[in-house]
Structure formats: C-alpha cells, structure tokens
Nucleic acid binder design. Structure first.
Length: 571
RNA sequence: GCACCUGUAGCUCAGUUGGAUAGAGUGUCAGCCUCCGAAGCUGAAGGUCAUGCGUUCGAAUCGCAUCAGGUGCGCCA
C-alpha cells in the first residue's frame, strides 16, 4: 500500500508543478470508500496556478496514464480520486500474508532495546481491578514493540520497599502473630490486606502509629534481622498470588526487580547529587529544587534519612540505562503520577544524563464504576469499594460459562474457554479506547458478545476457524482466481487486512494499543460481513474464497495476540 | 490557588498530516436462519463536534479566551 502512495504521488508530480514528496504529503485515504483508495486534493495547486481546483482535477484526470494496479482515476469536487484494481490488490495483499504468515505487517529486527516498566504492584496488597490497566497496556505494548523489531525488556518494578512495610511490620507485631519460618510460609496476601485495614483503623484513634511505621521502615532499611525476615515473608506471600493471576492473564516478565533491589545503589546517587550541588536542605529534608522548571521540589530523603519513591526511581533509571542501554524506557503508570515522573526525569536531566529524554511516562486514565445515583466514580481501596481483580475475573468467567451452557453445551473444556473469553473481554474493554480516557466499566457492556467487545472479535476468528476446519484442506495459491474475490464485502476485508503494517506502526509510535484494538474490530466486522454474504464451502468460488478466509484468520489471530487476548478456535 | 487530563448522537466512544455529505457500537423501531457458528447480518431514526473569537481556499482537528467535569500538588507509593 505504501508503495502505491509513492507511485501515485509520482504520477501527479509528473503532470503538475509539485514535488513527489509534497504530493505524497497531500495524498489522503478518503473516509468514504466510494471516493476511491487514494485521494489528492487540488486546492493548494489551485492557489499556486491561480486556477479553479475543479478544473485542475479534471485536467489531471485526463492526462494521467494509469499503470498496472490502478483501475480508474476520477475528478470530483476538486479532488482527484484513484481507484485500485480489485483483483490486483487482492493478489498483492493475500499473497504477502500467505508468505509471511503471523509476521505479516511486522518490521525487521532493529537491534534496539526498549525497557517497559508495567504492572509494578505494591507488595502486601491484593491486585485490585484497576491494576489490570497498567498490566495489560504494558503487556500489549511489549508485543507491539517486538512486532516493530525491538528487543523488549519487560520489567515488573515491584513496590517492595517503603513505609508501607513499616505499617505491616508494626501491625504484625502488635497482633502477636507467629514468627516461626513455618508459619510465615503459610501467610497469604489476603491476611496482609487485613493488616493494612486494621492499621488504617488504628491510625484513626492513634495517629502516633504512623510515626511508628516510619520508624519501623527506617529500622528495616538499616537491616534489622527480624524485620527483614518478616519483609521477605510478606513479599513471597504476595508474589505467590501475583504469579497465579499473571498466569491467568497470559502475562509474563523478563525481570522482577523490586524497589528494594536499589537500596544499595542509592548512596551513590545521593553522592552524585551532592557533587553536582543539586541536593538542598529544606525543612529538614533533602530535596532537589526545580522551581526554574515550574515544578515543586523533588524529595530525595526524609528527615530521618530514609529514602523515598523518587530516590529509588532515580537509581532504577540509572541502573536500567547501564544494564540495557535502552533506546527508550517506558513507564506504564496512571496519569495521576505524571508530576512525579516529570520531577524524576528533570532531576536526571540536571544530573547531565542526556538519555533522560528517552524516559517516557505512558499515562492512562482511571477505571470508574457507576454508583447508586448513576454517577461514575473511582473505586477506593481504603473504603473497600474497589473490586479485587481475582473477583472480577471469576465473576466474568462465571457469566461466560453460563452463556456457553446455554448456547454451546457440548463444547470441550468449557471452564478454560470461559476463562479465556472472560479475561479477553475485560482486557479488550480496557484497551479499546485511548489510554488517557477513563474506563467507564459496565459489566453488561464489557461481557456482551455484541458490538465493540472482545467476544465479538474472538467470535469472528472462531467462525473463520470453523470454516477452515470443515473444509479440511489448505488452498494452494495457484488455485486462486483473484477476480472471484472482488465483491464489496471481500474487497473491504482485503483492504482492511492490508492495513495491518500501518496500524502496528502507529500503535507503536503513539504507544497506544487502542489503535490495534480498533483495527481488530475492523477486521472482525469485515470478516463477519464477508462470510455472511459469501457462501464459501460448496460454492463455485470455494477455493478463492477459502484462501481469503485463511489469510483473514492469520491476520486476525496475530492482531488478537498483539493485544494480549486469547486467540481461541472454538467457543 | 497552580499544574495536568477530558468535553463529538439518549448512553459508551472512533475520527489519520487540517480535506468532500462528521462515523461506529449500544439503546429505540423495522427486517433476515431448509444455508459454513443468528455469539451473525441488513435498514430507519438520532448532531449547535461545550461556548466565543482567530488562522486557512478549507477546522471536530491548529491558536487564544471562557465554561463544565475529573485528577494531582513536602516527609505514601
């Protein structure tokens, strides 16, 4: 498709006073497909030639000689519309898919690495529903970057350090819970969640406990043996449940590097800051002033000498650059933390790290749920209105299972399939809109099989698979008659398949999985339409149509995979 | 108060680098299974693109201002 834009730009440049580059810039793909595949607006030429754009378009249409692949050029309302030869396009697109298979539309390896920091939950807490966003946006971006030729380092930057652990330790000891290794191994994240709740409760009547927690963390930082043992047990209990959930979601990481890992790398960072005269005492705190950038100061060290979130992020960024020599480092973290990242990136810049400009915060909006008055609001962990991720997944699975029992009770391995559909529905609901938009979560809409949903996309793939299963053979490309797949629905499907490369590239450039999610919907819709309007098996055009079904299946399957949904074959 | 995000059909959202008559889904209404999965397809109705001014041959898109909703701002992460 790209080569055709250049070709057409060349045709125009040949007959009009405009460079190929400029002509290519002006060339658009019309929204209305009845206006052709490519359209050239003649208005800027009109200004240059001081001539009516309608007239220019008409003259150009007369003069241009069409090369192979183009069927028609037409002047309309000052636009020059180019129509491709349908059979030509069909052969060009489908043969390339047949050759490249699932890698169709991918870019070659580029020997550049990208670090993607995503999911990164806090230890000691259960995953809430909203953690799905970072996890699945990051997961999809990882796959998208790989498809664009990058080496991706998936990093789970666990929140395993900080005052929160002081709170847990204080509460654990206060409640006289067992300290033997055997007992600690049995700890579950559920119990830790309860400790947080009792801490918050206690803090209401006894605010000094907050100070105790801070002291406990300082003691942990200083290496107290008992505190370290408890900390390790808390972390392990959380990781156990975390791994279980990632397994269900189909997510994996290359590195689990918690904040605690950077503990011994922090003194060097602080020394560095001092050397560069960036560290300043302010109200007993060590900070870096950023007022010239109109940012509040970045807090580096608390009054008791212990470290903060930003300090550890500085150390982590430096470590990642040294270890991975990344081209880019993405932080898939909610929008609410954009100030924090601005500060951290700016401090690194002031430390003279030129690569600080390669650090990118990839923000996303909140998950909102509707309250009794119908107002959209954020679930709050503290008040317990936030749903736990495991509960949401379980409820989704059950709902899908009920549906399968009703519609397709003989399906094999129903429970597994229901989980895969349920998870995919939740994930698709998270990815289908632009990252920055808040997700207004509606159970019925998300799990519906109709409309812009995961199941709708999966169902299109299932139908394609079903036809191929029944055909029970693979079409040889030499048996395809291209002019048998040029009706409107086939042509729309082929054009859609041909846009895969462009969509993968755009999704990568914008760090925006929703571009690919919308594309998956386009393919699914075109596929549903095609197989509804064209009988495949038993028709005189069977081989040609089946070849299209094969290639559509390949493209849809890979697109689904890049989003992190399950490409199921039966449902 | 300051900073950031959002505002497009009743609801949830797309809208490419500024291009032609602003598009989907959902809901409402009306149709299509002797036929590869109806978990699907086809049609109708539904719009002051928050508002105003500006730039341009041309603005939902770019600039400025205003309004509305949301989020964040020193010892949490």
């Amino acid at each position: 498709m790209n080569s055709f834009e250049s070709l057409i730009a060349g045709l125009i440049a040949d007959k009009a006073p405009i460079t190929i580059e400029d002509a290519r810039q002006l060339l658009v793909v019309p929204q209305d497909s009845s206006h052709g595949n490519f359209s050239f607006p003649c208005f800027s030429l009109a200004k240059l030639l001081k001539k009516n754009p309608k007239l220019i378009a008409e003259e150009l249409a007369d003069q241009i000689i069409l090369p192979v692949g183009l069927a028609k050029v037409e002047a309309l309302n000052g636009y020059l519309n180019f129509y491709m030869d349908r059979a030509f396009l069909a052969s060009k697109v489908l043969l390339e898919i047949e050759e490249k298979k699932l890698n169709y539309g991918h870019a070659p390896q580029n020997n550049k690495s990208v670090v993607i920091d995503f999911s990164s939950p806090n230890m000691g807490k259960e995953l809430a529903f909203h953690h799905l966003r970072s996890t699945m946006i990051g997961n999809s971006l990882s796959k998208i970057y790989e498809a664009n030729g990058y080496k991706v380092e998936r990093v789970n930057h666990l929140g395993d350090w900080g005052t929160a652990f002081g709170k847990l330790i204080v509460m654990y000891l206060k409640e006289n819970l067992p300290l033997e290794d055997q007992e600690l191994e049995k700890l579950s994240v559920k119990e830790l969640n309860l400790l947080y709740a009792s801490f918050a409760n206690e803090a209401k009547s006894n605010p000094e406990i907050e100070e105790e927690a801070r002291k406990a963390f300082t003691r942990l930082e200083q290496g107290d043996a008992l505190y370290r043992k408890l900390w390790a047990a808390f972390k392990e209990a959380t990781l156990k449940e975390l791994r279980r959930l990632y397994q269900i979601l189909g997510v994996s990481f290359d590195h689990y590097v918690g904040e605690s890992f950077f503990e011994d790398k922090i003194p060097a960072v602080i020394e560095n800051l001092q050397q560069k005269k960036l560290l300043i005492k302010s109200q007993d705190l060590d900070v870096v002033m950023l007022e010239d950038k109109k940012l509040p100061p970045c807090l580096i060290r608390k009054s008791d000498g212990s470290t903060l979130y930003a300090t550890r992020d500085l150390a982590a960024a430096i470590y990642r650059k040294e270890t991975f020599d990344f081209e880019k480092c993405l932080y898939v973290v909610d929008l609410g933390q954009s100030l924090h990242f601005k500060q951290v990136f700016e401090v690194l810049k002031q430390m003279d790290y030129a690569w600080s400009q390669d650090l990118l915060h990839i923000p996303f909006g909140l998950i909102l749920q509707q309250n009794e008055e119908g107002k959209w609001e954020k679930g709050k962990t503290r008040t317990g209105t936030a749903s736990l991720l495991r509960d949401v997944i379980e409820a989704a699975t059950q709902k899908i299972l009920d549906f399968i029992e009703e519609k397709n009770p003989n399906l094999a391995d129903k429970k597994t399939v229901a989980t895969q559909i349920g998870v995919s529905a939740l994930v698709f609901n998270d990815l289908k809109n632009k990252r920055l938009m808040d997700v207004k979560f509606d159970w019925d809409a998300a799990l519906s099989f109709e409309g812009a949903t995961g199941p709708y996309v999966q169902n299109a793939l299932v139908r394609l698979y079903s036809i191929m299963r029944k055909a029970a053979y693979t079409v040889d490309k030499n048996d395809v008659q291209w002019d048998q797949i040029i009706d409107d629905t086939a042509y729309e499907l082929i054009k859609t398949l041909g846009r895969k490369e462009e969509n993968i590239r755009k999704a990568c450039e914008a760090n925006e999985p929703s571009i690919l999610a919308q594309y998956a919907l386009d393919i699914a819709e075109a596929a549903h339409r095609f197989i509804h309007h064209n009988r495949v098996l038993g028709s005189t055009e069977e081989q040609s149509r089946l070849f299209l079904v094969q290639q559509a299946q390949t493209v849809l399957e890979n697109t689904i995979e890049l989003l992190g949904l399950y490409p199921i074959q039966q449902m």
